[in-house]
Design a protein around this nucleic acid. Structure first.
Lengths: 240, 240
DNA sequence: CGTAGAGTTGACTTTTGTCAAAATCCGTGG
DNA sequence: CCACGGATTTTGACAAAAGTCAACTCTACG
C-alpha cells in the first residue's frame, strides 16, 4: 500500500506527494523548492542484501529511505564488521559523506527489499544554501547522532558483551516496535546482531540461548520477542 | 606571551583581537557581529583538574578553548570513564549540548591550566540564525566529528587493546605534535591514557612497558616519545 | 538433490580485567 | 629539612570473559 504511493511518486513526478513524515528532506525543505527536488530525485529499488554504497566510494549524493531497512556499517577485515545503525523508513543515509572527507566512511546495505531516494550532492548542497533552516536542522540531527554514537562508544568500551546484546535488543525494540505477537519488528541474522553488539557470532548465539533459557526473550522463527523487559534492562546496568 | 593577548582581550573588550586561528567562532562569524560577540563573551580561567561542565548539567552555552587542553569524557561507574577527545587551543567545547537533549551528555575537565571562552546559548543560537555560513560550517564540523567517533567505535569493538593504545599514541602525536626532544607535547596520566584507549590502568601500564622494551616508545619524566613509528603503526593493523 | 549459507555445539586459548600488596613520588605542615 | 598521608605507580597472581577453531547439522533454494 505504500508501494502505490511510491509508484505515484515516480509516475507523475510533477506532483510531490511522498509521505512527508517519511522523508527528512521533505519535512524541512521550502515549499517552493519541492518541484526542484522532484526533478532531482531518483527513486531506486534495492534488493535484500544489495549494497547501496560502500566504504571508500566517492560521495555522489545522499539518500533517504522510503521503504525498508538499511544497515549502515563499517568493515573490519573481511568477515567482521560493526553495524553503526539501522536506517528505517524516513531516515537519511550517506550524510556522513558530507563533511570534508569526500568518500563514504561507511557502507549501506539493504536488510530487506527497500526503496531509497537519491539526491545528488550538488543539488543537496544548493538546497542547504537557500534553506538555512534545513542546514540548522541537519546540524541538530548531527548533534544528536554524535551523542548517540558517543554513548555507544562508552558502552562498547565498558559494558560486558551480555549487556551490549541486551542493549542492542532493547534499542531494536524501541526503534522498530513489535508485531502483534510481541516480536521485535525486524529480522536480523545472528551475524548482523553480532555486528550490532560489536561481538562475535558464537558469542551472540550462546547469550541468546541463555536469555531464552532465562525466559527473558523468546525466539520463534527468527523473530525475537522480549518477554521480560525488566531483566533485560537490568543486564545493561550490571557493573555500573 | 599568548597570555598578554588574552589580557588585552579582557581589558579593552571594545576591540576584538583574539587570535583568529584559535577560535572556531571568530574565524567564521560575520565581521559586524564581532562586537556583539565581545559583549557576550566571558573568558574563564580554569585550573588543572577543574571541571568546566559535567555530564547531566543543563546546557547554558558553549565554550571555546583559548589556551590549554581540556578532556571531554563520559563517566562509567565512579572510577572508570572514557575520554572521547582532547580539546586543544581553538577547539569548540560543549557543542554536543546543541541537539535536542538539553543536558550535556559529557563532562569537560581541564588537563592543564587553561583559559576558555564562554558564550551563552541564546546568543550563540541567534548568531547561527543570522549566519547560515556558520551553521553550515558547524554542520560540517559535526559530520567530521561523527566520522571520527564512528571510526573510534569500530576500533573499540574490534581492535585489541594493544592496537588501541598504539592508536591513541599515534593520534596524540598527530594532534599535539612533539617537543624538541621528540616527545609528544602533552602530559597524560596513565589513568587518562587508559580512559582514552578504553581500557584499564594496569593494562595500559603493562603495554607501555612492553612498548618501551621493544624500543617503540621511550618515556622520560612522564613524557612519551615515539621512537619507532612504523612498528607502532603495524600494531594498529594487526588482525585486520 | 546438492550446495551454500546459516545455525549449533563443544573444547580450548588468549586476552584482558580484577584484586591486593608493595614501592615510590609529592606537596604540606611541623 | 623532615615526616606524614595521600595519590599515583609498579608488580604479581588469579579469574573470568570472550574469541577462535573445528566439526557437524539444518534449511532454503536453484
Amino acid at each position: 500500500m505504500h508501494n502505490n504511493q511510491l509508484l505515484a511518486h515516480d509516475m507523475k513526478n510533477s506532483k510531490h506527494n511522498c509521505d512527508l513524515k517519511s522523508c527528512f528532506l521533505c519535512t524541512l525543505c521550502l515549499k517552493e523548492w519541492i518541484p526542484a527536488i522532484d526533478a532531482h530525485r531518483q527513486t531506486i529499488p534495492v534488493k535484500k542484501g544489495e549494497v547501496i554504497f560502500e566504504e571508500g566510494d566517492a560521495v555522489k549524493g545522499i539518500y533517504f529511505v522510503y521503504e525498508g531497512k538499511v544497515k549502515v556499517h563499517k568493515k573490519w577485515g573481511n568477515d567482521k564488521g560493526l553495524i553503526l545503525r539501522i536506517a528505517n523508513k524516513g531516515a537519511i543515509l550517506g550524510h556522513r559523506g558530507l563533511g570534508h572527507n569526500h568518500f563514504y566512511p561507511i557502507s549501506a546495505t539493504a536488510l530487506e527489499p527497500s526503496s531509497v531516494c537519491f539526491i545528488d550532492l550538488d543539488f543537496f548542497q544548493s538546497t542547504l544554501k537557500v534553506n538555512p533552516q534545513l542546514t540548522y536542522e541537519l546540524m541538530m540531527f548531527f548533534a544528536d547522532e554524535l551523542q548517540e554514537s558517543e554513548n555507544n562508544m562508552r558502552n562498547l568500551a565498558h559494558m560486558p558483551v551480555k549487556g551490549r546484546i541486551a542493549q542492542a535488543l532493547l534499542a531494536l525494540h524501541e526503534k522498530f516496535g513489535s508485531t502483534k505477537d510481541n516480536g521485535i519488528d525486524i529480522i536480523l541474522s545472528r551475524q548482523d546482531l553480532a555486528s550490532l553488539a560489536g561481538t562475535t557470532y558464537e558469542t551472540v548465539f550462546r547469550f541468546m540461548n541463555q536469555l531464552t533459557e532465562e525466559k527473558i526473550i523468546a525466539v520463534t522463527n527468527k523473530n525475537i520477542a522480549i518477554t521480560n523487559m525488566e531483566k533485560l534492562v537490568l543486564l545493561t546496568k550490571e557493573k555500573e
